[in-house]
Simulated scan of single mutants.
Amino acid sequence: MSPTATGAAAGAVLALTWILVGFWAFVLVALAMLLGAAVGRVAEGRLDLRALADAFRGRRSSS
């Protein structure tokens, strides 16, 4: 699935959630989607949690 199609599907899910069950359900679904995307990136090896934690702590890396 292309990034454009994935984004369109995510937008449709969020819009329908907002319309059908309200704003707070929309926020909950959006947070769940973000968490799922982050877990997927970690599982694929495309997101390094150690480097991310170091960046939040203010440590810099030369690599």
Score class of each variant (00 low, 15 high):
Ala5Trp: 06
Ala5Pro: 03
Ala5Arg: 02
Ala5Cys: 03
Thr6Leu: 04
Thr6Ala: 02
Thr6Gln: 07
Gly7Thr: 04
Gly7Pro: 02
Gly7Trp: 03
Ala8Cys: 08
Ala8Val: 14
Ala8Glu: 13
Ala8Phe: 08
Ala8Ile: 05
Ala8Lys: 08
Ala8Arg: 13
Ala9Trp: 00
Ala9Leu: 09
Ala9Thr: 04
Ala10Ser: 04
Ala10Phe: 14
Gly11Tyr: 14
Gly11Lys: 14
Gly11Asn: 13
Gly11Asp: 15
Gly11Pro: 07
Gly11Val: 15
Ala12Trp: 08
Ala12His: 12
Ala12Met: 06
Val13Glu: 14
Val13Asp: 03
Val13Gly: 05
Val13Met: 12
Val13Leu: 15
Val13Lys: 10
Val13Ser: 06
Leu14Ser: 14
Ala15Trp: 14
Leu16Cys: 08
Leu16Lys: 06
Leu16Val: 02
Thr17His: 00
Thr17Pro: 02
Trp18Lys: 09
Trp18Gly: 12
Trp18Met: 04
Ile19Pro: 03
Ile19Ser: 09
Ile19Leu: 13
Leu20Ala: 12
Gly22Glu: 05
Phe23Pro: 02
Phe23Lys: 02
Trp24Met: 09
Trp24Cys: 06
Trp24Pro: 01
Trp24His: 06
Trp24Ser: 07
Ala25Tyr: 02
Ala25Asp: 06
Ala25Pro: 15
Phe26Ser: 02
Phe26Leu: 03
Phe26Gly: 00
Val27Arg: 07
Val27Ile: 11
Leu28Asp: 07
Leu28Arg: 00
Leu28Thr: 05
Leu28Asn: 06
Val29Asn: 08
Val29Ala: 12
Ala30Glu: 03
Ala30Gln: 01
Ala32Tyr: 05
Met33Phe: 07
Met33His: 02
Met33Tyr: 14
Leu34Cys: 13
Leu34Ser: 15
Leu34Glu: 12
Leu34Tyr: 15
Leu34Val: 14
Leu34Asp: 14
Leu35Cys: 14
Leu35Phe: 11
Gly36Val: 04
Gly36Tyr: 09
Gly36Leu: 10
Gly36Pro: 06
Gly36Asp: 05
Ala38Cys: 05
Ala38Arg: 04
Val39Phe: 15
Val39Ser: 15
Val39Ile: 12
Gly40Ala: 13
Arg41Ser: 03
Arg41Asn: 09
Ala43Met: 05
Ala43Pro: 00
Ala43Ile: 07
Glu44Trp: 01
Glu44His: 09
Glu44Ile: 03
Glu44Asp: 09
Gly45Ser: 12
Gly45His: 15
Gly45Leu: 13
Gly45Asn: 14
Arg46Trp: 11
Arg46Phe: 02
Leu47Met: 08
Leu47Tyr: 11
Leu47Lys: 04
Leu47Trp: 15
Leu47Pro: 03
Asp48Gly: 10
Asp48Ala: 11
Leu49Cys: 09
Arg50Gly: 15
Arg50Ser: 09
Ala51Ile: 12
Ala51Phe: 12
Leu52Asn: 10
Leu52Met: 06
Ala53Glu: 06
Ala53Leu: 07
Ala53Gly: 11
Ala53Trp: 12
Asp54Asn: 04
Asp54Met: 01
Asp54Pro: 03
Ala55Asp: 00
Arg57Gly: 09
Arg57Asn: 06
Arg57Thr: 06
Arg57Gln: 13
Arg57Glu: 10
Gly58Ile: 03
Gly58Arg: 10
Gly58His: 05
